[in-house]
Design a binder for these strands. Sequence first.
DNA 1: GTCCTTGCAAAACGTTTGCAGTTCA
DNA 2: TGAACTGCAAACGTTTTGCAAGGAC
Lengths: 146, 146
Amino acid sequence: MDAIQILRQLKEKGVRFTPQRQAILEYLLGTDTHPTAEEIYQHVRAKFPGVSLGTIYNTLNMLKEHGYILELSYGDMSSRFDGHAKNHYHVVCSECSKVVDFHRPLLQLEQEAEQKTDFQISGHRLEFYGICPECRKKRILIKQAD
Amino acid sequence: MDAIQILRQLKEKGVRFTPQRQAILEYLLGTDTHPTAEEIYQHVRAKFPGVSLGTIYNTLNMLKEHGYILELSYGDMSSRFDGHAKNHYHVVCSECSKVVDFHRPLLQLEQEAEQKTDFQISGHRLEFYGICPECRKKRILIKQAD
DNA sequence: GTCCTTGCAAAACGTTTGCAGTTCA
DNA sequence: TGAACTGCAAACGTTTTGCAAGGAC
């Protein structure tokens, strides 16, 4: 689904179609780098020099509430946003904070979680933590220099 | 493992044993409510009226770096901390932000993630999102009132 | 005695909010 | 036309930092 289709669906819910929103959504759908709000801001500003960070957050929250994007947050850094809301998991580098997709069929554990906790489950998130190949190489180089 | 044992292990790494740290760790190990830094601060302050929030964050970051506690963060609220670093997953209420433990054998997926992404994986986190029983009841009451 | 840690205050950071002006429907 | 949205700036809450005093070892 592309940006225009999503915005048309949203229009039926009373959400207005604006060029800023289109630009934000197009950028998010076109990348798999899980950008921060600031990174999205810098890219959208290339097209709309007047756009403000407030509008970025505004749009991201709206898209998140409607389930079109995913917010990934970690304690020590700003949230990252993923325009491909479903069907994959994430691997996060503990050193450089990069987030990489890990494609794999979704787990069938939600029913088990519902039964054990009595929550009404609507989704889940699975993340792996480790060191990415690039940071591993850097580590080896540093060790050799000692 | 209790607070004193953990602090003794840390002492061997050059981390000093202080009563503030003991109090923070004891509170974290003794609860399964996943408190925020502020909540930990309020509890520790009952014993040490002079303690500062800075010290709480200081200690939490130190414990996190040494792998004794887990930081759980979500976009729209402050981080929560879990003193039982391993062997369980979480269920988060989208309405009241409560975090409940979900006990279950850990997934054996880290090797698969390593192979597919070339990261060196050291751990993973699995979280379910939904509505807790209490918030579900409230929703029903509100609907009936309409 | 040394150096790590504390408490305090200020600063930094990401994010949200309020408002006047603008734009989409 | 009118409600929703934008840009801007100020405000907010969480977390970090700098520094002098204190405490662990």
